[in-house]
Write a protein that binds this DNA or RNA. Structure first.
Lengths: 252, 252
DNA sequence: GTTGACTCTCACGTAACGGCAGGCAGGAGC
DNA sequence: GCTCCTGCCTGCCGTTACGTGAGAGTCAAC
């Protein structure tokens, strides 16, 4: 029924130092001490620790946790609501960043130059109406910028060569199929859509069907990506778009 | 073409102190100084800052950012890949936490007691196989635990009364409809499903159709929630489940 | 020539601990 | 009774990425 710091630390998955800290700041003081000064935690202390860890995990600062737990009049539902909002915002932010990274990786793969606005847009710290015009000049198409961008989109030499080879091989095959008149939802073409996905997964990131269809949409929506594929063969962007969607549906 | 700290701070959305700090640690030193010692940033500095902020936003520590930016041999694609993985993990974690909070809020709304395992399961710091048996005892159904839980699920008095009233009113109406033999996908019943969603949105959190169908599934999957509705009227849990799904589909 | 806004360099403060040092405490084995 | 080992104690400094002044110099305007 009574536990030492070490025991508590072990079962709660925290360090002894953390418990010392919580004692120091008065967040969780053990209910007693031995004659030698050893901290003694009882069940009630453990329950309080449970609460503390719960709120901590939810992102509350320790001081606020103290207030929440010690104030019997506080409304826990309000805290949950607030925390739910915070989490939702953070979640949305993260999702945007994941999308932005996927976008950047695709662009990097195809050697497409991102505009500075695109690089910045993921963290919307800017007030566009105030700086838009200036920004154009400031971040504009200087040679230095282009050079830095070129360097930034450079791959490890060996990997790059292999990626390029695989990609071109894949490109030749899908162009051939398109030229042969195979419909975009035919098994052979869908198989190449699947290969496209696996190519991304192998070299860049785990690409789900959902993510791949997102990319396919982007290939049509963003003219630079469209141009990349149209440059390989006229109509390829739309063809690939359809094939990816067909493949995703058939695998679902 | 040359900017002072204040100007850079303003356009980049950071504080002057931050720029000072970046100068101190050598992450971003302005290309020049005026005779009076004022920092002078040029376009190249701004571009470097842009990169810094980009990586910072992606969660890299400043020291690592220095290494990334200063090492021309580094593979930026590898960093992007790594960061994509990190973000994906964080995203998943956040999603779990949001789900856990929604679960907790629903439970709190219905005065359902969460088991300690459920409270803890969102942060999996425990090795269950080692402590499961002990945990049972330690966190078990003591009166103190129940009492603390009761207090933790208490609402602000006025709000609580209104929520309860609205909820019971809604309950009476759906029970009446079910008793009248109205099918779960009839317009009237779906309207009540819609009201259920709005009730949650108004008092707890913005509840999308997707989230509501998730709740509906839980009402059937978790016997404590099932019991809550079956206690109001036999068959209500399944009836509401069907109505919510029907409503969600029709609104999509 | 003076005001007010801006800048400079120390330099300490913050959150939530990590990680030492130096020194007791307590049980096991001899 | 002595030693050994492990665990516990209290300081106290270190960390990250800055915040927040203090005190002093600088710049452009009125």
């Amino acid at each position: 029924m009574a536990y030492t710091v070490g025991q508590v630390a072990k079962v709660a998955g925290v360090t002894v130092r953390t418990l010392h800290h919580y004692d120091e700041i008065g967040l969780l003081s053990p209910s007693g001490r031995t004659s030698a000064g050893y901290r003694r935690y009882d069940d009630a202390d453990l329950q309080r620790l449970q609460l503390v860890l719960y709120y901590r995990e939810l992102g509350f600062p320790l001081e606020e946790i103290t207030a929440i737990i010690d104030d019997p009049a506080a409304d826990p539902a309000a805290h949950l609501r607030r925390q739910h909002e915070l989490l939702t915002v953070r979640l949305k932010r993260l999702q945007e960043m994941v999308t932005a990274i996927e976008f950047a990786m695709e662009a990097s793969k195809m050697n497409i130059q991102l505009t500075p606005e695109e690089r910045f847009e993921v963290f919307g710290d800017f007030s566009p109406e105030e700086h838009e015009a200036e920004a154009e000049q400031r971040w504009g198409d200087t040679d230095a910028y282009r050079e830095s961008n070129r360097r930034a989109s450079r791959y490890g030499k060996d990997d790059w060569l292999r990626i390029k080879a695989e990609n071109e091989d894949w490109g030749r095959r899908i162009v051939a199929l398109m030229a042969s008149g195979a419909s975009a939802d035919s098994p052979e073409v869908m198989e190449l859509a699947e290969e496209h996905r696996q190519l991304i997964s192998r070299w860049f990131y785990e690409c789900s069907y959902e993510m791949q269809t997102g990319l396919a949409d982007m290939y049509l929506a963003d003219e630079r990506f469209t141009a990349y594929y149209e440059n390989i063969a006229v109509g390829l962007a739309a063809y690939l778009h359809e094939a990816i969607h067909a493949n995703a549906i058939s695998r679902a």
